[in-house]
């Protein structure tokens, strides 16, 4: 990717028009950190969307609506009742990167090591995409394949709606790293809905040690309807091997990646259960 031109449209429709005209030569520019990983030399025109009012976090009814160009640092700093997104954001890269890297940049083109898709899958978030009008896509559909394909026609991600956790909901995420600023060896996120001592619903997702972020249906199935207890979590985590093609990274064997994921699932579930029972913020 070689940036040859730069344009700053004045409105969302104008940005979409620009992108449609440019076709494959157009490139949305928000934080710009993803460009580091796109090192071919194709000449592109950057379409800057950072001044279109897409940087915000709003509590809107049952959702937190987060603008697509909101820097990760803002998400990290934001606080509200039963808000959970800060937990993963403070583990992504460095302060300097988080100051410019955006939510949209992290999920419009998903790299295998990306943490936010894992969290958004577990949270059952909804992606709002502008294509002349705004349409919502549930995370399961949005992350089914590489989202970058959705934007080839000039459509633009405008915000992400993250469900506000209810009193009986809990969330936990685990990111295992070699050093603080490095990409994850494995990322796990879990959201539990409790009904008394039992698990009413569960969403568990994984990333980094697998080719593409995904939910872990066997793990979820082993949780629903059962007691929110360590032994159950342990048993459910043991199902992770069947749910994804765990692969070795950074000198680790695939078996170790799977093992690490299982331990991390257990830890994430424990956190989520504690959260749901009412943890200290």
């Amino acid at each position: 990717m070689k940036l040859c031109e730069f344009i700053r449209p004045a409105s969302l429709p104008a940005a979409r028009d620009n992108l449609r005209e440019l076709g494959a030569k157009g490139m949305i520019l928000a934080g710009g950190t993803a460009l580091h990983f796109m090192q071919d030399h194709t000449p592109v025109t950057a379409v800057d969307i950072t001044r279109l009012g897409l940087s915000f976090i709003k509590h809107e009814g049952a959702f937190y609506n987060i603008g697509a160009t909101t820097p990760l640092a803002d998400i990290q700093r934001y606080r509200a009742p039963r808000w959970a997104m800060h937990e993963i954001c403070r583990r992504i890269s460095t302060h300097q990167i988080r100051n410019i890297s955006t939510l949209g940049g992290n999920i419009c083109r998903v790299f295998p090591w990306a943490d936010l898709p894992v969290v958004l899958l577990a949270m059952d978030a909804r992606m709002v995409i502008y294509s002349g009008k705004e349409t919502e896509f549930p995370a399961d559909e949005y992350f089914k394949t590489q989202p970058a394909k959705r934007f080839l026609g000039g459509d633009i991600l405008t915000s992400v709606k993250v469900p506000a956790l209810q009193a009986h909901h809990g969330f936990g995420s685990i990111k295992v790293v070699r050093t603080e600023a490095s990409f994850a060896m494995v990322t796990i996120a879990a959201r539990l809905e409790l009904d008394g001592a039992n698990i009413k619903s569960a969403r568990v997702a994984a990333g980094s040690a697998i080719p593409f972020p995904r939910r872990l249906p066997s793990v979820e199935a082993a949780l629903v309807g059962r007691e929110a207890a360590t032994a159950v979590f342990q048993e459910a985590a043991g199902k992770a091997g069947a749910d994804a093609p765990w692969r070795g990274r950074e000198g680790m064997s695939p078996d170790y990646s799977r093992h690490l994921a299982e331990v991390s699932i257990l830890d994430a579930l424990e956190r989520a259960a504690t959260f749901a029972r009412g943890r200290a913020e």
Binding site: T94, R178, T179, E180, A181, S182, F183, E250, G251
Partner: peptide, 27 residues
């Protein structure tokens, strides 16, 4: 704790600070 050269057929496969992990002040 973290530094290692990984090879495939004699070629180092982690020749960048993204993949070769050195401690920074954060660590």
């Amino acid at each position: 704790l973290t530094e290692q050269y990984l090879f495939r057929n004699g070629r180092m496969t982690n020749a960048s600070f993204t993949d070769y992990h050195i401690f920074s002040m954060r660590d």
